[in-house]
Structure formats: C-alpha cells, structure tokens
C-alpha cells in the first residue's frame, strides 16, 4: 500500500513540468526514504535525478519498495488538473496496476480522483558517485534561465568557463558571437539574489544549449540554481526543492575531435 500526501501539491506539479520535456517514460521509485526517479533522455546525453524525501510529506506510507512506470506527459496532464493550492495524494494498492492522484482543495470542498494505468518500463539505472567539483557556481535561477535562452538565439553550444574573474558563458553562430560574464556578488539584499563561485581551479567545458534550456524548466522550483563543473565529468545543474529534496540534471560535455 502506498499513500503519499503532499500538502504543497504545487511542488509536484512543478516537478512534472521540469522533467517531462527531457524524459518521456520513467519509473518513480518509492521507498521508506522517499519518492525518487532517475532517467536518461532518449539520446543518453542527459540524466535527471529527482528526490522528494519522505519527511517532506505530511503523510508518507510505503509498505514496501515500489517502482511505478509512468508516461510523464500523461502524469503532467493529470497534475495540471490540480489547483496550485491543492493537497495532492499519490495512492497505489499493492499489486494493482494503477496509480491514483487525489487532489483536495484547501477548504476540502472539492476532492478529485485521477487514476492512471501503470506501464512496464525497463529503465537503465546509472551509478552516480559523489564527486569533488573544480568549480561550483550558485546563482539566481532566473538569471541562469535568461542566459541560456539568450545564448541559444545566437548559437547551439555554450562554453562555460570559471576563472577567478567569474563565470563566463560564450557562444558563436552564423550571425555572430556572445559572451556573458557573471561575477561573484554577495552584497545583495536577499541571499537568493547572490552569485557565489567556489573555484578549486579554473575549468572550461562545452555543452549543448538545447539540454540546458530544457533543464531551466525547473526554474519555478527554486530561486537559485547550482552548477557544478569538473573537466572530466558531466555538469550537474541542481534545483533544490525547499525542505524536500532536489531535481538534479547531469549533462555530458561536447569535446573537440
């Protein structure tokens, strides 16, 4: 028996909007620790990892580990029927091949049940070892989304370089080139407006902007984003989900042959 009750149902709505463009079908894994998902995009260039810890749910009952295969587009269609202030409960009986999403309005005067058939998805799970990163940039998520959007109108790959000057985003295309430098800035009114750069050593990597732009669909989840770079690893773009967990995107770099 699975019954997960999330008072801040809007988080789940935003999570689906954040991942459904990158991944079509995926398994949601439920265990005592939480509700998670790991999936690659169809071209195996990017990977998304979601974790919603059990403590973040008002009620979290998961009698035994369960993996539920779903089409994320269909889940998104159902969750769009939930109000942004609704309480969302995910329910599944042991052995049943359906999952139910229940939406309760804040004053309990409207209760909706959306039931969906589960799918058999044999997804490949990748082991992601903890790593030390040569540079970690923390910046306003809206800022990062704006940079990725602006640069993709000029070119389709971005070189992200971190030096002691700051973090530079560069691209080039048929119409010309663009360079955006963000410097560390801690003197801001609100901490979420700060740009903080931790650099162990300078690093520069090249990535496809199309994937970074799909990662920024997670912007509504968090005021800030962290970008972790190492010359021999995929970039990790992380949006924390307040008090619950995170959505992490991993993107393999492009190299000069």
């Amino acid at each position: 028996m699975l019954e997960l009750r999330l008072v801040q149902g809007s988080l789940l709505k935003k999570v689906l909007e954040a991942i459904k463009e990158l991944v079509t079908d995926a398994n949601f894994d439920c265990s005592a620790t939480g509700f998670s998902l790991q999936a690659m995009d169809s071209s195996h260039v990017a990977l998304v990892a979601l974790l919603l810890r059990s403590e973040g749910f008002e009620h979290y009952r998961c009698d035994r580990n369960l993996s539920m295969g779903m089409n994320l587009g269909n889940v998104s269609k159902m969750l769009r029927c939930a109000g942004s202030d609704d309480i969302i409960t995910i329910k599944a009986d042991d052995g049943s091949d359906t999952v139910t999403f229940m939406f309760e309005s804040p004053n309990q005067d409207k209760i909706a049940d959306f039931e969906m058939k589960l799918m058999d998805i044999d997804s490949e799970h990748l082991g992601i070892p903890d790593a030390e990163y040569q540079a970690i940039v923390r910046m306003p998520s809206g800022e990062f989304a704006r940079i990725c959007k602006d640069l993709s109108s000029i070119g389709d790959t971005v070189i992200i370089s971190v030096t002691k000057e700051g973090v530079k985003f560069s691209t080039a295309g048929d119409i010309g080139t663009a360079n955006i430098v963000c410097r560390q800035n801690k003197t801001v009114d609100k901490p979420e407006e700060a740009t903080v750069i931790e650099m162990q050593e300078p690093v520069s990597l090249t990535f496809a902007l199309r994937y970074l732009n799909s990662f920024t669909k997670a912007t509504p989840l968090s005021e800030t984003v962290s970008i972790s770079l190492s010359s021999d690893l995929p970039v990790v773009v992380e949006y924390k989900i307040a008090d619950m967990g995170y959505v992490r995107y991993y993107l393999a770099p492009k190299i000069e042959e």
């Binding site: 260039v45 990748l126 496809a208 492009k254 000069e256 042959e257």
Partner: peptide
C-alpha cells in the same frame, strides 16, 4: 568538429 559525449561514458549502469 565537436562531438557530443554520452552520459553513459561517465556513469556505469548499476
């Protein structure tokens, strides 16, 4: 030319 690497080059299947 630029070559896009696969994520599977960095993380092994479990």
């Amino acid at each position: 030319t630029e070559v896009q690497l696969s994520i599977k080059r960095f993380y092994r299947s479990t």
